[in-house]
Simulated scan of single mutants.
Amino acid sequence: MAHFSGSMVAIITPFREDGTFDEERYRELIEFQIEKGTDVIVPCGTTGESATLDFEEHDYVIKTCIDQVNKRVPVIAGTGANNTAEAIHLSQNARKNGADGLLLVCPYYNKPSQEGIYRHYRKIAEEVALPQVLYNVPGRTGVNISAETTCRLAELDNVVAIKEASGDLTQISEIIARAGDKIDVISGDDFLTFPMMACGAVGVISVTANIAPDRVKRMVAAAAEGDYATARKLHLQLLELHKAMFIESNPVPVKTSASLMGKCGDTVRLPLAPMAPANLEKLQAVLKKYELI
């Protein structure tokens, strides 16, 4: 079964000023990632504003990504939904389009029980023959996938990894201790990638890699090689940049950063809004400090 690791980017979806998908800029962003050594591209995650893409757009953005990547690196398509049937539909389309894996966010808003979460993922695994990356992000979904449920799901053949953004290093360590031979753990929090890799995680699906892919890659590569002194130094150097990416709801700061760097427009779709002026000033100061603008 597939094994996804290293520095993976949750890539932004650029929009034109009128809010339509900017395909040309998207293809350029993908080229930038591959040039800078990013190991895996992840379209249509939270950072890709999947929540405000309609079905047709969602499929089209994934298809465009797969086409541009052209098998140079794996593509893990974000196809999660809080309706299991919808998630299956999006996942089947991603498979037809040639995705290498699926990133499946835990159902949000419904607040399913642990049994409901288990059955949701099991059903998708039964219906779609692609490697699955579970995605635990309680701050967004309102529900935590417990270590026990993750270990249960690890028994399913096509569940290969979990993107952990619970911020709970105890829970993360427990998954690795109990089922590390059956499921990979991937960091879903840039500022926790280093400690998570020290515990046995295999990489990150990163927000910051959108704007500093080479630096994120260097840190992840050092940790993967067991060079923790270098990894720690890079982790601490990147901390302020990681924090700046979350001064407002993701992906507003990272998309604004990409725009300030001249890579794409800063348009986000409602209900997301442009950055507050005070936060924009803070962001610009950090980007200057890191010599990104």
Rank of each mutant, 00 (worst) to 15 (best):
A209N: 03
T141H: 05
D18W: 09
P277Y: 09
S91A: 14
G265M: 07
K217E: 03
V185R: 01
R152C: 03
R72A: 06
M245N: 11
L280M: 15
K243L: 13
S257P: 11
T267M: 05
N279K: 14
V207Y: 02
K36Y: 14
D67C: 09
E35V: 08
N93T: 08
V61H: 09
S91F: 02
L238A: 06
I211T: 08
K243Y: 11
C106K: 01
A99P: 01
V286M: 12
F21K: 04
A258F: 01
F246G: 06
R215H: 03
R269M: 11
I175H: 00
K182G: 04
A147I: 02
E248Y: 09
S206G: 06
T38D: 08
I117N: 00
A94R: 10
E240L: 14
P253D: 05
L153A: 00
L29S: 11
P274I: 11
A201G: 05
N82D: 13
N93P: 02
L53H: 00
K96T: 07
L169F: 02
D22Y: 05
T64V: 15
L292H: 08
I172A: 10
C199V: 10
E126H: 04
E174S: 13
N93W: 11
G101R: 05
K96A: 11
I247D: 08
D266G: 07
D189N: 15
R269Y: 08
A223D: 05
E49Y: 09
S206Q: 04
N97M: 14
T20G: 06
P213H: 05
S257N: 10
S5H: 13
I66S: 03
I175R: 00
G37S: 07
T52A: 12
N110P: 07
H3N: 12
E56T: 12
I41L: 14
G45K: 03
H89I: 00
V42F: 06
P274F: 11
A222Q: 00
L90Q: 10
S259W: 10
T170N: 14
I88W: 02
S113M: 10
D67T: 12
R232Q: 08
A51D: 14
Q132I: 15
